[in-house]
Design a protein around this nucleic acid. Structure first.
Lengths: 209, 209
DNA sequence: GGCGGCATCTGAACGTTGTCAAGATGATCT
DNA sequence: AGATCATCTTGACAACGTTCAGATGCCGCC
């Protein structure tokens, strides 16, 4: 646990407390769930007083924002790997979704924090949606490469959103007990995810399949 | 404040406190958000001591379960109206989704509580999923009436889940600012919802569209 | 090289929360 | 009428988020 890339503001008294706090917070969230992550516990974990965090975050919610940010970056890595996977374009749409949901399954509490933060601000992090290399854009591009009409700007946008919504919905519901029987019948959770998200491959109306 | 329909267990000291607590809780959740709903505030609102709720709910989370239950029933009403609407079967799949998301938009805090409870237990309320008249079954039936193959049990189940996931995802993301431009371009939120969920109509592979 | 200033951290405190145990209250049943 | 038991209150506890006055140690400036 020693990311030694130093380029950040200032290692004053503690070294780099801000970072330490975020790391402790992520650890606590992933260990005991988002509800169990208290500011005081984070401070305890980092070995500082309960008031110390307030010099780096104005709020508990601002700490959670930082945790969420960390989460989005981890998700981006998983996403990138799926984009580069060797599969035919229509399947790649599906596999992008599978990677997305797998991340949510692997980091349930982190995923929850990510979306709770986004929803409170009614806003996704800019780097997820806006720039050229964003995850959102990546879905769009895969849809195009799978045969969606690239001139239908609006339709493409709607299809991308539909894909994202389906993946997010599945991410939040995949652990429901109701689906256990079906998962077993299909031979595992992965097959289940592919089964559901296979329907996403035909989202964009022009897609062959 | 005098709902005088009495048919419930026992109006002992207070009348029917349990009901009063749930109603107060729903009110507080819808007014100030789920985070602002404290047990003590609910008790205050109902005019009882902070410890009184513990004779009706073993936990705060059990009160929230009751709130969620209330929410699912309201959603069911909205759902029923959409099912009975006069539209062609393929559109009805979409309109079911629209009604779902509209409910989530109209009662954001309640909707949040509903899903937070479900997720904590990894379980949807039984009456939503299991019986013959459940909302889940209703989606399935509409898919069939829209042309999905009724003999492909597994495929039908997967399509139903995909629809539900897309609707849930959209419900949680529809308020994101990123979509404002697109909503404007399409001429309103409803058109946006139809645009996204129109892609759900082609979920079931056999659907004509 | 000392000094002032400032970012950083501590200590103690306030109000609020969820929860519990012990006692008061009052409806119901024999 | 008196016992019983669910119901509600009182009072308390630990934990939480947040604030504020003060201690601590790093920085640049003279």
């Amino acid at each position: 646990m020693k990311e030694s890339e130093a380029a950040d503001p200032r290692p004053y008294h503690h070294g780099d407390l801000r970072r330490a706090l975020v790391e402790a917070a992520v650890r606590l969230v992933e260990a005991d769930g988002p509800g169990a992550m208290s500011l005081r516990a984070v401070a305890r974990e980092a070995g500082v007083s309960p008031a110390a965090p307030y010099h780096h975050f104005k709020d508990k919610s601002e700490l959670l924002d930082a945790v969420a940010h960390e989460g989005w970056e981890k998700l981006d890595l998983a996403f990138q790997a799926a984009r580069d996977a060797q599969t035919s374009p229509p399947d790649r749409v599906r596999e992008l979704g599978v990677a997305y949901v797998r991340f949510a399954i692997a980091h349930p509490a982190l995923y929850r924090v990510m979306y709770d933060c986004s929803r409170d601000k009614a806003d996704m992090p800019a780097h997820v949606h806006e720039n050229e290399e964003s995850a959102y854009r990546r879905v769009r591009d895969v849809l195009v490469s799978a045969g969606a009409d690239p001139t239908d700007e609006v339709g493409l946008e709607l299809a991308t959103i539909a894909c994202w919504c389906a993946a997010h919905g599945l991410a939040e519901m995949t652990s429901f007990k109701q689906f256990n029987a079906l998962k077993a019948e299909l031979g595992g959770e992965d097959a289940f995810l592919r089964g559901v998200l296979g329907h996403v491959g035909v989202f964009a109306k022009g897609l062959q399949r």
